[in-house]
């Protein structure tokens, strides 16, 4: 049921990467509860532009939970209080009339703030470039059923492949660890025959890149999986550990 609510937004403002940041309090009045949270921020930004103030910078793209561009740490949770959903899938009806909603950028040394709520997640691209792919010869594609794959492996690989690379796992982690992301990317290939030939090289390269970029050591708190909008499972991290240990022992 739609109704209108008014709320306050406590938002992190920071002019640039090297600038001091601070919280700023804004008010939004009479917002329909069916408005998405990012639309509410759009409304706020329009009001700011009208007043001649600097609009709030935040990342977004598809607005349908598939691209992984949106971020935001809302009321103590990456992607807000909803589970299994991205910030762009969050609606104003999640909040109460008169509530103060705190909105912060992802906080991790490997994800420095660019401006306001926007952080630099380039580190994830670098990890992907280090090995998050399979190499194919050019030419006609192989018959789809030429490679037998068990249903269990196919399902697991598919689940791992749903990771959208948003970085909520890093934002949620007290150790700033990227293990859930890296494990999902390693798992989606490690589970399939197409990924096997490069499996050892892949896991070593991706993990080395992750370590080099300054992400932390996983202590298995599980905050990542609890906050992941795509419900990527902790078992992926066990698989990553297994793949890495086996690859290193085979050296």
């Amino acid at each position: 049921m739609e109704k209108n609510i008014s709320f306050k937004l406590k938002i992190w403002r920071q002019a640039g990467p090297k600038e001091e940041g601070r919280f700023e309090l804004y008010e939004l009045n009479d917002i329909p509860t069916d408005t998405s949270f990012l639309e509410a921020l759009d409304i706020l930004n329009e009001q700011l532009v009208e007043k001649g103030e600097e609009p709030i910078m935040f990342d977004h793209d598809c607005r349908e939970g598939i691209c992984g561009m949106c971020s935001l740490y809302i009321n103590g949770h990456p992607h807000g209080p909803a589970t299994g959903a991205t910030t762009c899938q969050l609606y104003v009806r999640r909040f109460h009339d008169g509530e103060t909603i705190t909105v912060e950028p992802w906080r991790s040394a490997a994800f420095p703030v660019i401006k306001d709520l926007m952080v630099n997640r380039n580190a994830f691209d670098q990890i992907q470039q280090a090995g998050g792919y399979v190499s194919f010869n050019t030419g006609g594609a192989q018959d789809a059923n030429a490679l037998p794959i068990s249903k269990v492996a196919a399902d697991e690989a598919m689940d791992s492949a749903t990771c959208i690379g948003c970085g909520a796992c890093v934002a949620a982690c007290k150790n700033g660890s990227a293990m859930l992301f890296v494990s999902a990317k390693v798992s989606q290939f490690a589970l399939l025959p197409q990924g096997k030939p490069e499996a050892k090289r892949r896991v070593k390269a991706m993990l080395a890149k992750m370590d080099e970029l300054g992400f932390g050591n996983c202590t298995n708190t599980g905050a990542c999986a609890a906050e992941c909008p795509k419900n990527i499972k902790l078992s992926n991290i066990a698989r990553l550990n297994r793949e890495y240990i086996c690859a290193k022992c085979a050296d």
């Binding site: 406590k10 940041g21 919280f23 740490y73 009321n75 103590g76 949770h77 705190t102 912060e104 906080r107 991790s108 040394a109 490997a110 949620a172 982690c173 007290k174 150790n175 700033g176 660890s177 300054g214 992400f215 932390g216 050591n217 202590t219 298995n220 708190t221 599980g222 905050a223 999986a225 609890a226 906050e227």
Partner: peptide, 25 residues
């Protein structure tokens, strides 16, 4: 190392998800 990776800026509001045990942190 983990403190360094986390960075010096802490969250203003943070909540521990139900599935995360206090001991683990």
């Amino acid at each position: 190392q983990n403190r360094k990776a986390r960075g010096s800026d802490s969250y203003d509001v943070s909540a521990r998800p139900k599935t995360v045990s206090w001991a683990s942190q």
